[in-house]
Structure formats: C-alpha cells, structure tokens
C-alpha cells in the first residue's frame, strides 16, 4: 500500500584504466624538442624548462623542488641555497656555483637534480584538459646541470604511470586526502612507508606528506599505492567541503591533473557529508563493499 521511497543505492565508482597515449605525451613538447626551443612550457600541472630542445628543469606545485630536497637530505642548508641563488641566480649559474664553492659535489647535485626533474615532470605531463603555453627565450636560473632529452622524460613518465598501475590500479589515493583503514597489514611496512603511514590523518594528501617529509612526491605515490594495495590506506571517500588547506590553490583548482579521473562517487545528496568524521557515513564504509571493491581491483589487475 504505502510506497516506501527508497532512494536507489549510489552506483559503485567505476574506474578508468591508466591510458597511455600511443604517441608523445604532449605533441607540443615533441614539436618544441624538434625545433630545439629554449624557454618554459607551462601546463596545468607545472612548468617544464627547456634549453635547446632538452629538459633542464621541471617544477610542479605537487612536489617539493630541488632546493627542498637538497635541504631535507642534509646535502645543503638554507643559507647555502639562498647565497647561491643570490650570487649566481641572475647569471643562470646556480648549479655551477654550488659545485664550485664546494657546497655540494657534482655527483650529488646531478643525482638530486635528475630525481627532482623526473619527479616534477611526471606531474607536469599528467593528463590535462587545459591548453599548454610556451614562452620562448627564458633560461632557467639553475643553469645547465644535466639536460635530459624530451623523449627520455616522456618515456620515464609513461613508465611511472605503468608502475603505479601495476602496484595498485586505483588512482584515487594519488590526490585525495588519505585515511588509514586500521586493517591489520599482512605484508610488512618498510620504515620509509612507515613514515608515510604515520602522517596519514584524513586531511593530508600524498603531496602534503611529500612536502612534510622532503621527499619526491612520486615516491610517496608509490608508497601510498603499495599501502593501498596492502589494505592499510584508502582515499578519503567524501571530498573535504570548502577549500582544501593547500598552499598551492592552483593545483587544488585543477582536479584533472592526475593520471586519470578520480573515481570518487559524488557524495549522495541524502547524506550529510560531515555527519561523522569517520568514514562510517560513507557508502564505502561497509567492509563487504570495500572487500568486494578490492577483490574486483585485484582481479582486474591480473
């Protein structure tokens, strides 16, 4: 008699597999490499600095820069870095200055530089719907350290996408605030992963944790996906209302930066998203659904 109006259950989120384009990641970048351009390529995810068609530096708000990495590793202190930029920044010779003044060895600078370059390039070359722009003629202040061919950077970026996909095919944890599931972890957690795990508080994203630890952000994505595969970590299902407390609002405004659309279901309208801080209010809190999702993901990953 009485019709019980039960709202249909929200559909389970569907995922899109990582898509690797057959050609280059950015046709514009390939063209710039072919014409041996010098300048800076501006994409949604950050900047790629070119000199003679080769990549000399990359920066992205998603990951700590070379200075932050050097300082975090104890290879350099902040004063040393500031002095080098003040002394040699206008001459575009900061890298040379650091080595010549004995603050860092050439090998250490090269390795940190390459690590930072490929790391930032991964985010700069992430899928993006916004048009890219290129400004000719701007040499980067770091100066030449170890230029890398565009093809090499693209190849490595694709390899990294595949690596993440192989570890755990769900990209949800790449950008969302992270939650600890509290499930007992069967596989052991390495000390490096432990440090990541310790900083997961339901608010921080992988990028925030990278900055806190002074690590390349891609390394944190790898650790987080491994932890997600082990069932220890999950993306916080309900988006944080209001602006995220990110020091980089530009990135926060660009939800399409990651390796695929974030497969978060929109929060169902009949639920108050902030009703409880735990994930019990979300449709994915049901352990059975979570288990089924993980099972499906694992089967798909085979």
């Amino acid at each position: 008699m009485t019709m019980v109006a039960t709202p249909p259950p929200p559909p389970l989120p569907t995922r899109q597999r990582t898509q690797i384009p057959s050609g280059g990641l950015s046709p514009m970048l390939s063209r710039l490499a072919a014409e041996r351009a010098t300048g800076v390529l501006m994409r949604e995810g950050g900047l790629l600095h070119l000199a003679d068609g080769q990549v000399v530096y990359a920066e992205s708000p998603a990951t700590p820069g070379l200075d932050a990495l050097l300082i975090a590793r104890g290879a350099l202190d902040e004063d040393g870095w500031r002095e080098a930029v003040a002394e040699a920044g206008t001459r575009h010779r900061v890298g040379r200055f650091l080595v010549d003044s004995g603050l860092i060895s050439e090998g250490a600078l090269e390795l940190c530089h390459l690590g930072a370059l490929y790391d930032a390039a991964y985010f700069v070359l992430g899928p993006s719907s916004a048009p890219a722009r290129f400004r000719y003629g701007e040499a980067h202040w770091l100066g030449p350290v170890r230029p890398v061919p565009v093809a090499g950077v693209e190849r490595e970026t694709v390899r990294r996408r595949e690596l993440l996909h192989r570890i755990w095919p769900d990209p949800a944890t790449d950008e969302a605030p992270l939650l600890r599931t509290g499930h007992p972890v069967v596989t052991s957690v390495t000390p490096r992963q432990g440090e990541v795990l310790d900083r997961i508080d339901g608010v921080r994203t992988a990028a925030d944790i990278s900055r806190a630890l002074g690590r390349p952000a891609f390394h944190t994505l790898v650790d987080v996906r491994r932890l997600a595969a082990a069932g220890a970590v999950t993306a916080r299902p309900v988006p944080v209302p209001g602006p995220a407390p990110s020091p980089f609002p530009a990135l926060g405004a660009a939800p399409g930066v990651g390796p695929g659309p974030v497969p978060q279901a929109p929060s169902p309208p009949h639920e108050a998203p902030r009703a409880a801080p735990t994930d019990l209010s979300s449709p994915f809190a049901d352990p059975h659904i979570t288990l089924l999702k993980r099972l499906r993901d694992a089967l798909e990953a085979l």
Binding site: L114, E156, R159, L163, R192, F218, D223
Partner: peptide, 12 residues
C-alpha cells in the same frame, strides 16, 4: 647503472 630503487629509474 645508477638506480633509484623506489621508482626503478636508472639515473645513469
């Protein structure tokens, strides 16, 4: 080769 073992990338 010189390799970063988190990402598996050869830096040289």
């Amino acid at each position: 080769a010189l390799v970063d073992y988190t990402t598996g990338m050869a830096l040289g």
